[in-house]
Design a protein around this nucleic acid. Structure first.
Lengths: 122, 122
DNA sequence: ATAGCTGCAAACGGTTTGCCTCACA
DNA sequence: TGTGAGGCAAACCGTTTGCAGCTAT
């Protein structure tokens, strides 16, 4: 655990969800390359997890923070839902196909209630 | 419907799942930029849909081909599962949160049976 | 004439690579 | 003194933008 790694962990902890770019901004003095390499390392040893919350950069968070993501692609809001939301699907995939769902990577897209209500704009 | 658009539709139909790059390879003489713009247009008018099957480029397919994707991130295999797989989750999100799940964009990740069995590597 | 589509080239965002340096076992 | 971590710059991939030419109203 180098100082840079401690800083990156601290930044992700504080930001809850963070792209590599956001992490780099939060840890001035640490090179962006180092941020990428560090995020990868920390994920590999199981401290962090990432998922894709949209078209851009991936979002990192603490692996211990076990929840799934529900993203509105109209307003881009991200809802953190309890991990249990994926349980039934997870069970079904396991039973029918022996497939082990990775919940940490689980994100679904759609239209949130607010956007569905005021569904004027595209 | 220009000739280029017909070609792109034909290519996606034939490839089943195709990245913009793969489409461009399948339609020589059509510029990559045109492929991007055409895929976007065809998606907008409801003929195509795309989802993200991994870290790289998005994958386009016919919108009429209504299924969800299950991806093994160990061997990168893509399983096309019936759209019904998402029904329970879809219902739950609608009831609890008024969230309308977009099935065309639905992809889940995990470890397939084969990789889970021979789980030596990585 | 006008509007929309195409091609080409350049810009762009996000990420990775190569290489050289430094710190510490 | 050798191994791993960090910094910097350049390459890289996928995508978008600007612009000019073409085609079919």
């Amino acid at each position: 655990m180098t100082p840079q790694r401690e800083s990156v962990m601290a930044a992700v902890t504080q930001l809850v969800h963070a792209t590599p770019d956001q992490v780099a901004d939060a840890v001035p003095g640490v090179d962006l390359t180092t941020v990428y390499r560090t995020l990868e390392t920390l994920e590999h040893i199981g401290l962090l997890a990432h998922t894709h919350l949209g078209h851009g950069a991936p979002s990192y968070r603490l692996a211990a923070d076990d929840h799934v993501h529900v993203v509105c692609h109209r307003c881009s809001s991200v809802i953190d839902a309890p991990a249990g939301l994926a349980d039934q699907l997870s069970r079904q995939l396991a039973e029918e196909r022996g497939f082990i769902l990775d919940r940490s990577h689980f994100t679904v897209f759609g239209t949130c209630a607010d956007c569905a209500a005021g569904s004027s704009h595209d």
